[in-house]
Amino acid sequence: MTSCHIAEEHIQKVAIFGGTHGNELTGVFLVKHWLENGAEIQRTGLEVKPFITNPRAVKKCTRYIDCDLNRIFDLENLGKKMSEDLPYEVRRAQEINHLFGPKDSEDSYDIIFDLHNTTSNMGCTLILEDSRNNFLIQMFHYIKTSLAPLPCYVYLIEHPSLKYATTRSIAKYPVGIEVGPQPQGVLRADILDQMRKMIKHALDFIHHFNEGKEFPPCAIEVYKIIEKVDYPRDENGEIAAIIHPNLQDQDWKPLHPGDPMFLTLDGKTIPLGGDCTVYPVFVNEAAYYEKKEAFAKTTKLTLNAKSIRCCLH
């Protein structure tokens, strides 16, 4: 018999989150649709729960009410004593943790798909938090293969000092899905179709896995975050240069030392320094102006996964 890495157990509980950011409308629209008619997301033997994560922000069509829901799922915020004085999103995070967690427990949901849009030209993107997770690498390989020839990129946010504390991190297997470009507060049919297909293929993978299909060893190309880059700023902290036209919409493309990065209003080009080629992502993302992030630098690498098969009882 072929030796293989056996994944822990079959997958039982899956959640699909929309509206973690209330103005990213593809996930909101799909989740609302699936709450009314969820036939397309159901798979035999699998509990799939669509869920609106930040209903107040969705109602106002804004990213958040008090603070970013997708950055506060750490033990400090989840452990705060519940009171009306807490920011709305912290209270909501505790409610979500109660419903789908608790985080880092045996009772937490197996998989959470968190649906997002970006204003950046990132196409279909899967966000991975753990480079050693054979199950998710296999799932992402399946999704990428199923979507081809449509490109699907994998963004690895594993980093020693950049801690995200994402909404989906309460699950055993957290999956971020990011599709763009799409303006905030807008629905685009092409973007919706791409996100819908990503979810379909992900659920198909889980179904095949649960039925005992063995997935042979595989490898995927990923883009691992190195650092986030702020806009150049003046002495008052105001933005002093904008994304250069040569960099705009060039997510995932190589940016070499000396290539144009920013452009000042008086026409001066600010190039990339250093001696390493990087791959920019979230270029000129609207939501990241407040976070002082013009783009993120990534490096390209390959992740390998062992063969996996479900432990059938």
Score class of each variant (00 low, 15 high):
266 D>K: 08
54 N>I: 04
111 I>A: 05
51 F>K: 04
98 H>C: 11
183 P>Y: 02
163 K>H: 07
40 E>I: 01
174 P>N: 13
70 N>P: 08
123 G>C: 05
26 T>V: 03
176 G>P: 10
55 P>L: 10
103 K>H: 15
198 M>L: 11
7 A>W: 15
219 A>S: 15
151 P>N: 11
288 Y>L: 10
223 Y>T: 01
177 I>N: 03
162 L>A: 09
129 E>N: 11
186 V>C: 15
120 S>G: 04
227 E>H: 06
170 I>Q: 05
60 K>G: 14
97 N>W: 09
114 D>G: 03
225 I>P: 07
2 T>M: 08
78 L>M: 15
135 F>L: 06
194 Q>K: 15
94 Q>L: 08
195 M>E: 04
75 L>C: 12
220 I>T: 05
208 H>G: 07
167 T>F: 10
215 F>K: 01
91 R>C: 09
173 Y>I: 08
21 H>K: 05
38 G>D: 10
32 K>M: 08
293 E>S: 11
70 N>K: 14
154 V>C: 14
225 I>V: 15
123 G>T: 04
309 R>S: 11
112 I>D: 02
16 I>W: 01
13 K>P: 02
29 F>D: 00
139 M>C: 04
115 L>C: 14
227 E>D: 10
160 P>S: 09
78 L>T: 12
34 W>Y: 11
121 N>T: 06
105 S>A: 08
291 K>V: 07
67 C>E: 13
215 F>Q: 00
20 T>C: 08
158 E>H: 05
304 N>I: 10
217 P>G: 07
64 Y>W: 11
138 Q>F: 02
254 P>L: 04
61 C>G: 14
71 R>W: 10
37 N>Y: 12
286 A>Q: 12
93 A>P: 05
298 T>S: 11
257 P>C: 05
245 P>L: 02
86 L>D: 13
307 S>M: 07
284 N>A: 13
162 L>C: 11
97 N>H: 10
194 Q>T: 13
164 Y>I: 07
53 T>S: 09
30 L>G: 00
49 K>R: 15
51 F>N: 02
313 H>Y: 10
130 D>A: 04
166 T>A: 14
304 N>K: 10
31 V>G: 00
93 A>M: 11
192 L>E: 02
76 E>Y: 09
205 F>W: 05
100 F>Q: 05
113 F>M: 14
115 L>S: 03
312 L>P: 15
49 K>G: 03
50 P>M: 04
230 D>C: 12
163 K>R: 12
148 A>N: 15
187 L>N: 09
78 L>P: 08
252 W>S: 03
173 Y>F: 11
228 K>H: 07
35 L>M: 12
276 C>K: 14
54 N>M: 04
28 V>I: 13
125 T>P: 00
40 E>F: 05
221 E>Q: 06
149 P>H: 04
92 R>K: 14
104 D>T: 10
234 D>T: 11
169 S>R: 14
35 L>H: 12
229 V>H: 04
263 L>R: 07
307 S>D: 05
9 E>N: 13
61 C>T: 12
33 H>S: 14
21 H>N: 13
14 V>R: 00
238 E>P: 02
267 G>E: 06
214 E>K: 10
185 G>Q: 06
206 I>K: 00
267 G>R: 08
304 N>T: 12
76 E>A: 11
6 I>Q: 10
14 V>Q: 01
58 V>N: 05
228 K>A: 10
175 V>W: 02
3 S>R: 15
24 E>D: 14
65 I>N: 06
292 K>S: 15
285 E>Y: 02
308 I>P: 03
127 I>H: 09
284 N>D: 02
240 A>M: 13
85 D>I: 12
263 L>D: 02
259 D>Y: 05
68 D>P: 05
119 T>G: 00
96 I>H: 07
125 T>V: 11
135 F>M: 05
290 E>P: 15
16 I>C: 03
153 Y>E: 13
64 Y>C: 11
205 F>C: 01
12 Q>H: 11
160 P>D: 10
177 I>D: 02
281 V>P: 00
30 L>F: 01
192 L>R: 02
131 S>G: 13
48 V>Y: 01
207 H>F: 15
110 D>H: 06
13 K>I: 04
21 H>A: 14
161 S>N: 15
313 H>K: 10
101 G>I: 05
179 V>Y: 02
198 M>P: 03
202 A>R: 02
58 V>K: 05
68 D>L: 03
285 E>W: 02
296 A>N: 09
299 T>L: 07
113 F>I: 10
249 D>K: 00
141 H>A: 06
309 R>E: 05
234 D>F: 15
69 L>P: 08
281 V>Y: 03
39 A>Q: 14
39 A>T: 11
233 R>Y: 07
96 I>R: 06
123 G>K: 11
223 Y>K: 00
313 H>I: 12
84 E>R: 11
206 I>H: 00
158 E>P: 07
184 Q>Y: 13
150 L>W: 13
234 D>Y: 08
80 K>L: 08
66 D>N: 14
223 Y>V: 01
22 G>A: 08
300 K>T: 07
213 K>L: 12
151 P>C: 06
69 L>I: 12
209 F>V: 06
191 I>V: 11
209 F>I: 05
289 Y>I: 10
89 E>V: 04
169 S>T: 11
260 P>D: 08
227 E>I: 02
197 K>F: 09
36 E>V: 09
83 S>I: 11
233 R>V: 08
276 C>W: 08
267 G>Y: 07
126 L>P: 00
83 S>C: 07
116 H>W: 01
68 D>T: 05
203 L>G: 00
23 N>F: 03
92 R>G: 07
74 D>K: 10
208 H>Q: 13
3 S>Y: 07
261 M>K: 03
178 E>C: 09
73 F>E: 14
286 A>D: 04
280 P>Y: 02
52 I>E: 04
92 R>D: 07
289 Y>P: 09
68 D>Y: 04
180 G>L: 01
7 A>S: 07
240 A>I: 11
304 N>D: 06
209 F>N: 01
309 R>V: 08
155 Y>A: 15
93 A>N: 06
283 V>G: 03
308 I>K: 00
300 K>W: 03
73 F>H: 11
39 A>L: 11
101 G>A: 07
142 Y>G: 00
47 E>W: 08
78 L>N: 10
208 H>K: 11
220 I>R: 00
42 Q>P: 02
305 A>T: 04
291 K>T: 08
253 K>L: 08
147 L>F: 05
256 H>T: 15
270 I>D: 02
58 V>R: 06
224 K>I: 03
287 A>W: 14
51 F>C: 14
65 I>Y: 07
292 K>Q: 13
135 F>P: 00
123 G>W: 03
176 G>T: 15
10 H>N: 09
82 M>I: 15
80 K>F: 12
166 T>I: 11
172 K>G: 05
282 F>N: 15
159 H>Q: 09
205 F>N: 01
279 Y>K: 00
136 L>H: 03
15 A>T: 03
173 Y>Q: 14
187 L>P: 11
62 T>Q: 15
283 V>I: 13
311 C>R: 10
297 K>M: 15
14 V>P: 01
82 M>F: 13
155 Y>D: 02
309 R>I: 08
252 W>R: 12
56 R>V: 14
51 F>G: 01
30 L>N: 01
113 F>L: 09
147 L>V: 09
25 L>V: 14
291 K>Q: 08
223 Y>C: 04
277 T>W: 04
260 P>A: 06
268 K>H: 12
35 L>E: 08
15 A>N: 02
138 Q>C: 00
59 K>L: 11
223 Y>A: 03
57 A>S: 11
103 K>D: 15
269 T>D: 15
152 C>Y: 00
164 Y>M: 07
244 H>I: 00
197 K>Y: 09
46 L>S: 04
263 L>E: 14
103 K>G: 12
12 Q>K: 14
78 L>E: 15
246 N>A: 10
288 Y>N: 13
126 L>T: 01
273 G>F: 07
251 D>F: 01
32 K>A: 11
101 G>C: 06
273 G>R: 14
113 F>T: 02
139 M>F: 01
55 P>N: 12
236 N>C: 15
205 F>M: 03
127 I>M: 09
105 S>D: 12
134 N>C: 08
251 D>T: 02
305 A>E: 01
282 F>D: 06
10 H>V: 10
82 M>R: 12
18 G>C: 02
5 H>R: 15
84 E>Q: 10
180 G>P: 00
201 H>P: 03
229 V>T: 08
85 D>Y: 13
147 L>M: 13
272 L>F: 10
184 Q>S: 14
108 S>A: 13
96 I>K: 06
269 T>A: 07
173 Y>E: 04
30 L>V: 03
177 I>F: 10
307 S>V: 05
174 P>H: 09
32 K>F: 03
3 S>D: 11
61 C>I: 15
44 T>Q: 14
24 E>M: 04
170 I>S: 06
274 G>C: 04
100 F>V: 08
